[in-house]
Every structure is written in structure tokens, then in C-alpha cells.
């Protein structure tokens, strides 16, 4: 009783009781909100795993889909190949450009261009992916190159670019100035400081950003509809032939009425989710290690 009194002078006060009751209700509401917010992820994971595992098989991973969606069997090997192929090319294009832009912003912050670049990189992250697809369609696909691996990769690279640039900017800023000053003190040129000191110091973070961008690109559908189009077989050519990807296959088979196609779509979703989630989790683990190292 004495303890209670010492905790609050208004214990006997009905207003205080009401306040505390309200506090408890709010806590319940918040926990309820958390449950509601987490539910979709649980439901998606559960459903994708349940139906995906049911339809997943060695055959699915190692063969291509049947010609007609109504037939059972086959798999999305061509989609996996297409996804990896396009994402790889997109990375080759966007990672150097994005890191270059971020380095410019951080290391040449006094330039008048820097804040502009920074702001518009931010803006670019918000550009709808379908618009990027439209742009590449109108410039590249109609420009005689046609639906192709290349067109798809270019669209993905434009989506990856701002993600790479912004995350690179963040990690480059985390590199302590002491390191830079020490290197300058030893007589290093600026380009040497950047390439030999700053980039290596930030390498984990740069890789993290690139991996998150790759994860995002691997899951994109809309821009590929207008640029890669789709294919039924493994496509190795860069131009001259339409390419396909896991998301495109899932999209086209999910829409239809066939059970066999739906089964493949679920298995494909499982494959794609694994790809994307592993990349994401690995990237986060890597970035956590970096920040811990940086702090220590």
C-alpha cells in the first residue's frame, strides 16, 4: 500500500484510474494493430510455402514450361535464367554509375550539382516502374532493338540506379573523415583516397546496397512486360529475341483458369520469394556487420 502511494499520488482518484484504463486499452489496440500488420506477411509466406512446396519439384527447377498452360509439369528454368541474365546486365550498368554518382555527391559535395543530384536521385526512386518500362519501350524497343534481354536489362538498370546511388551515398558518408585526412596526410591524391581508402572502407555497405537493388529488380514485372515480353524457352541472346523472367511467368500463368498453370505459378512464387528474401536477408546481415564494425 505504501509502495502504491509512493508511485502515484492520485491512486484513489477516479480520473487517474480512467487514465490508466485508457492507457491499457491503447496498448491492447497497438498490439492488435501489430498483429494486423504482421498478418499479411504470415499469410503470404504460409500460402506461398504451402502451395509452392506442393508444386515444387526437381523437374520444376530444371525444365521449361509446357507449350500449353493447361498441361501439367514442366517448370520455370527459362524464367530463372532470364531473371538472372537481365539482373546481371542491369547490375553491370547501374552499380558503377550509381556508386560513381554517390561518390561525386559525397566527395565533391561542394559542387553545385551535388544537392541537385541528391534530390533527383531521391525523386527517381519514386518513378513508377511501369513508366520506366514505357520509356525503354519507346526508345529502345521501338528503336529497332525490339523486345529483348537488353531492353529488359536497361529497364531494370534504371530502377536499380537510384537505389544503388542513395544507399551508396549513405555508406560513403559513414566513412570517417579521419581516414580521409590520414590518407591525404600521407600525400595521396584525391582519386587515390577515394579508390584505395573510401571505397574499401565502405565496401560492405556498397555491396549491401547493390544486393538490395538486385532484390528489387529481380521481383519487377511491369517494366519487363513492355521490354522483355516473355518467352517459352531459355533465351541466351542479348538482342533479337524476346526474353522472359520469373515474375512474367508467374503473372501470365496466375491470370488464367488452369490448375496446372496455377500450381506452376505458386512454385515460381516460392522460387522468386526465396531468391529475393535470401538476397534481402543477406544484405541486411552484411549491413548490420558493417555498422557494428563502424561503431566499434
Amino acid at each position: 500500500m505504501t509502495i502504491m502511494t509512493s508511485r502515484s499520488l492520485h491512486d484513489a482518484d477516479p480520473a487517474a484510474l480512467r487514465r490508466r484504463r485508457r492507457d491499457r486499452i491503447v496498448t491492447v489496440v497497438l498490439v492488435g494493430a501489430v498483429a494486423l500488420a504482421v498478418m499479411p506477411l504470415v499469410m503470404i509466406l504460409f500460402e506461398v510455402v504451402r502451395r509452392g512446396v506442393g508444386a515444387m519439384s526437381w523437374e520444376f527447377l530444371t525444365s521449361v514450361q509446357p507449350f500449353s498452360q493447361r498441361r501439367p509439369g514442366g517448370g520455370y528454368l527459362h524464367g530463372l535464367v532470364g531473371t538472372l541474365y537481365m539482373v546481371a546486365i542491369a547490375s553491370l550498368l547501374s552499380v558503377p554509375l550509381g556508386i560513381g554518382a554517390a561518390t561525386f555527391v559525397v566527395e565533391y559535395g561542394q559542387s553545385r550539382l551535388s544537392p541537385l543530384i541528391r534530390f533527383f536521385t531521391d525523386v527517381m526512386t519514386g518513378v513508377p516502374s511501369i513508366f520506366v518500362g514505357l520509356f525503354i519501350y519507346s526508345v529502345v524497343v521501338q528503336g529497332r532493338i525490339g523486345f529483348s534481354t537488353l531492353a529488359g536489362a536497361l529497364a531494370l538498370s534504371l530502377l536499380m540506379l537510384p537505389i544503388v546511388a542513395r544507399s551508396a551515398e549513405e555508406v560513403l558518408r559513414l566513412v570517417p573523415d579521419d581516414l580521409r585526412n590520414a590518407a591525404y596526410g600521407l600525400g595521396a591524391h584525391r582519386w587515390q583516397v577515394v579508390t584505395r581508402v573510401v571505397w574499401p572502407a565502405a565496401s560492405n555497405g556498397l555491396v549491401t546496397g547493390a544486393m538490395l537493388a538486385v532484390a528489387r529488380a529481380a521481383g519487377e514485372t511491369a517494366p519487363l512486360l513492355l521490354t522483355a515480353l516473355g518467352a517459352f524457352e531459355i533465351v541466351t541472346r542479348l538482342v533479337g529475341e524476346a526474353q522472359t523472367a520469373l515474375p512474367l511467368l508467374i503473372y501470365s500463368e496466375a491470370r488464367g483458369p488452369y490448375e496446372a498453370a496455377h500450381a506452376r505459378a505458386w512454385a515460381g512464387a516460392l522460387e522468386l520469394m526465396l531468391l529475393v528474401l535470401i538476397l534481402t536477408i543477406a544484405a541486411r546481415a552484411l549491413s548490420r556487420r558493417t555498422t557494428r564494425n563502424g561503431n566499434g
Binding site: A37, T221, A254, V276
Partner: peptide
């Protein structure tokens, strides 16, 4: 919740649709 953000939109579509 950040993982939820990493789920590709086509998977949301598939799950919603079927």
C-alpha cells in the same frame, strides 16, 4: 515488416488473385 516490403508485387498479385 521490412521483409514484407521485399515481397515482389507479382507475388502479392498472385496471392490476392488466387
Amino acid at each position: 515488416i521490412e521483409l514484407l516490403a521485399a515481397v515482389p508485387s507479382v507475388v502479392f498479385g498472385l496471392w490476392g488473385l488466387l
